[in-house]
Design a protein around this nucleic acid. Structure first.
Lengths: 96, 96
DNA sequence: TATATAGATCGGGTAGAGCCGATATGACAG
DNA sequence: CTGTCATATCGGCTCTACCCGATCTATATA
């Protein structure tokens, strides 16, 4: 749980949006072919205003801050919120 | 209370350090000539690794995020934590 | 007015973030 | 093997953040 890296990761609206979307996958990614229990497939974030390469970089930033977990299944990578890190960060920020 | 501006302001360790130092002025700024109840004078943050102009810019960033309040008294500017904004931000971040 | 001090702002240099299209990688299907 | 799809990485561009010394502005004091 690295506050500095997490704060930098959160300092971009797209990355915060990703975390918000992942709170309610069924609401935001209903079109996904795979079951949402596996997580949300990276490609689901494309075409939301950014190119595929930019989306990939943002997801990598979130993953390196440990704010999301990734799980590779075949040719797909599924993303989920990492509630553990998020909660720890919120707790750490309560004595800001 | 602008989350985006606040998160960007917090995404720098010096600015976070300032907020931490301001939690215990008597501990970190005992050398100040003015009473600490007025706040902490801008110049107290100089010579902590950064130049005067850099410190001034960081303080301006914190002020524009409303994380600190400023009060001009004569030729000095005194800074205090803005607990109201900080608490509102923490509350807003609890549903990250 | 002249001088001193605190703080803000300017100009310039460097580094990193963010964007894209193009290409590489890695996994599957035929 | 070959082609295809998902994702990652590369190269190049632009924009912003950050740093500094120098200068400007404002206040105070003689």
């Amino acid at each position: 749980m690295d506050r500095d890296i997490i704060l930098k990761a959160l300092a971009h609206s797209f990355r915060r949006d990703v975390l918000t979307w992942l709170k309610e996958p069924e609401r935001h990614f209903a079109a996904q072919a795979h079951p949402l229990e596996m997580g949300v497939c990276a490609s689901q974030f494309d075409h939301r205003g950014l190119s595929q390469s930019s989306v990939s970089a943002h997801l990598a930033t979130l993953a390196s801050a440990d704010l999301v977990t990734t799980r590779r299944v075949g040719q797909w990578v599924f993303y989920k919120r990492n509630e553990e890190t998020i909660a720890a960060f919120q707790a750490a920020l309560s004595d800001l």
